[in-house]
Amino acid sequence: MIEFDHVHKRFGDRVVIDDLSLRIEDGEFFVLVGPSGSGKSTLLRTVNRLVPVDAGAVRVDGEDIATLDVETLRRGIGYAIQSVGLFPHRTVAENIATVPRLLHWPEADIRARVDELLALLRLDEPGIAARYPETLSGGQQQRVGVARALAARPRIVLMDEPFGALDPLTRESLQVSLKTIQRDMGTTILFVTHDMDEAFGLGDRVGLMLDGGLAQVGTPLQLLHDPVDERVRDFVGGARARLRELAVRTVGQSMRRGERAEGEPVDADASLQDALGAMLTQRRDRLPVFQDGQPVGAIALVDLVARDA
């Protein structure tokens, strides 16, 4: 659990974080989203004490981090950033093993963990573990950075715009991998982005930061359906918010259970946006829905535009 208790931070005359309080629960994927300069990256960096707070407190599992040894604190928190920061003189395997070695894991456990993460993050190209960062693509480097952040099985991982420089296909693939790993491991992730689609696609809850404070905190659907003011309404998409909702809701939430349809099926876990794309591709207004390879219902075009879909 991460708790921000009336946190203040200023740089010179500029207030960056203004009396902010927030609680992030164990196992939650929490996303901070907002424009540049809103304070979201600064807030994230207070958790591992890369940025000291001027007032208030940051607590991890109930302990004020200001009272903890900083090296011990950081070794227990995974950290991934956009610029990756891989050690150029170390191989992929050595980069991933950095924190487990600092924690004196047995070598056999380190090798097993490296292999596990290479597989989970689809770094399965032959010989990639022995390669150096300069020989990797940008997407591969970012995957190694994520693997390094997860290597010691930290209960908390901080991620500061980790996918911001990637092409859309690579970015989407990494988002899917990260969400799956987070769900399986039960890791608490605090993720910073300026991309609202990324925030809604990843976050269990989303906090919209504006001018050093939290304008609204809630699930993606809460922000889309019930923005607290016009600033939030405009940021989540205004009149286009309904299109974003298609990417948040799943087919399984809106399908007609037990009904049948013709055509190539869509998965129950797919988004309504994916279902719309499949309908347009197949030129159909109704498709079958499968789950675990078995038919479970149908989804119709009208279900995508219904207000309570």
Rank of each mutant, 00 (worst) to 15 (best):
V114G: 03
D115T: 12
D115S: 14
D115V: 03
D115M: 05
E116A: 11
E116Q: 14
E116N: 06
L118Y: 05
A119R: 14
A119I: 02
L120R: 15
R122E: 14
L123M: 14
L123Q: 08
L123V: 12
D124Y: 02
D124A: 11
E125A: 13
P126N: 04
P126M: 03
G127H: 01
G127I: 00
I128E: 02
I128P: 08
I128Q: 07
I128A: 02
A129H: 03
A129T: 02
A130H: 15
A130L: 12
R131H: 10
P133H: 06
P133G: 08
E134V: 15
T135G: 02
T135V: 10
T135Y: 05
T135C: 04
S137Q: 00
S137H: 01
S137A: 01
G138D: 01
G138W: 03
G138P: 06
G138K: 04
G138C: 05
G139H: 03
Q140Y: 05
Q140V: 02
Q142K: 05
Q142D: 09
G145C: 11
G145F: 11
G145H: 07
V146C: 12
A147T: 12
A147I: 08
A147P: 13
R148S: 00
R148Q: 01
A149S: 13
A149I: 11
L150W: 15
L150K: 12
A151M: 10
A151H: 06
A152Q: 13
A152S: 15
A152H: 15
A152L: 13
R153P: 08
R153W: 14
P154H: 08
P154Y: 12
R155G: 12
R155L: 03
R155E: 13
R155Y: 06
R155A: 14
R155V: 04
I156S: 08
I156P: 12
I156A: 07
V157H: 05
L158P: 11
L158Y: 05
M159R: 07
M159C: 10
D160F: 04
D160G: 05
E161D: 09
E161R: 02
E161L: 04
E161P: 04
G164Y: 00
G164C: 06
G164P: 12
A165V: 10
A165C: 13
L166K: 01
L166Y: 00
L166T: 00
L166R: 00
D167R: 00
P168Y: 08
P168S: 08
L169N: 12
T170R: 05
T170F: 00
R171P: 07
E172T: 14
E172F: 11
E172N: 13
E172R: 15
L174T: 05
Q175H: 03
Q175M: 06
V176D: 14
V176S: 09
V176H: 09
V176T: 07
S177D: 15
S177F: 11
S177R: 07
K179G: 00
K179Y: 02
T180F: 01
I181F: 13
